[in-house]
Design a binder for these strands. Structure first.
Lengths: 143, 143
DNA sequence: CTAGAATAGTCAGATATTCTGACCAGATGT
DNA sequence: ACATCTGGTCAGAATATCTGACTATTCTAG
């Protein structure tokens, strides 16, 4: 096994989890969502998110974000509701079906983390997670 | 700051590094490569890689990989040479210009890892890296 | 050694994703 | 109240990606 750089190692692990979640959801019947739609969907906060927020957090243009939200609306996973705090804005919130998906995704995600914890041992896994949280301070402009 | 799941934390860090490298290369004059091309390019091994290998490692179809390699050839970053071991196959190898880019990218990547190490402290950073390498055993089908 | 299966890669055509530029309506600051 | 900023959309183009079909070469089991 070659010596890969650290960011790439992180990407490998991330993508593994993403694949597992995507495939798990498809197996559970949620097979009409594409990866791009799913990535955006995963960014929606519980209270709902604005299109602009989603665009920033997923690092796409707001046009792209809007386009993907349209499709999620059509598929019945989210709804657009007015944002009471700003008449220009609308909040993208998960529908009932969307909440089901979120729950299912969280379930799978939890299984993956459990697998990782089992593989590394609780001590190392906790340290890893803690280090990733700390790293976010220098890697996430949205903190 | 909310509690993000571990895979997403990894993605955030990865993308930060990817952005920095992409922007750094653009600033150094390599501004004609797209992200998709760059991602594929980053997978090319020193000895050269086959299109099929690149496709597998980047998780795209071989058609897509071939399409991106075509563009990299046209931009002068890689060449296709016959694979002496298999007359069906051709190896994608970096050109002289491609080697320059690789070197520049490695340079930036190193600076990022140095920054991370400085932020976490050598002890935690080393532990993080070591954990990521170990994690690869359960997340990378290509190990 | 040879037929059949597998592998490396390409061509063609369709779909999905993403971008740039222009624009509107509501909010904010002086 | 005027200019500016912000949230979002519309239109059109470029990029990336896929599925399906195909050729050429290699591998494998008789």
């Amino acid at each position: 096994m070659e010596e890969l750089n650290t960011p790439l190692l992180m990407f490998i692990a991330y993508r593994h989890a993403e694949n597992a979640i995507f495939e798990g959801l498809a197996a559970a019947g949620y097979d009409d969502v594409t990866l791009a739609q799913g990535r955006l969907f995963a960014r929606i906060r519980d209270e709902g998110s604005r299109v602009t927020e989603l665009a920033e957090s997923a690092q796409v243009t707001k046009q792209t974000a809007g386009y993907l939200v349209d499709q999620l609306v059509r598929l019945g996973y989210v709804e657009r509701v007015p944002d009471p705090r700003d008449a220009r804005a609308r909040l993208v919130v998960p529908s009932a079906k969307g909440e089901e998906v979120r729950e299912a995704a969280r379930e799978i995600e939890k299984r993956i983390e459990d697998q990782w914890r089992a593989h590394l041992g609780t001590r190392r896994y906790t340290a890893l997670r803690e280090a990733m949280v700390a790293l976010r301070e220098v890697t996430d402009p949205w903190v």
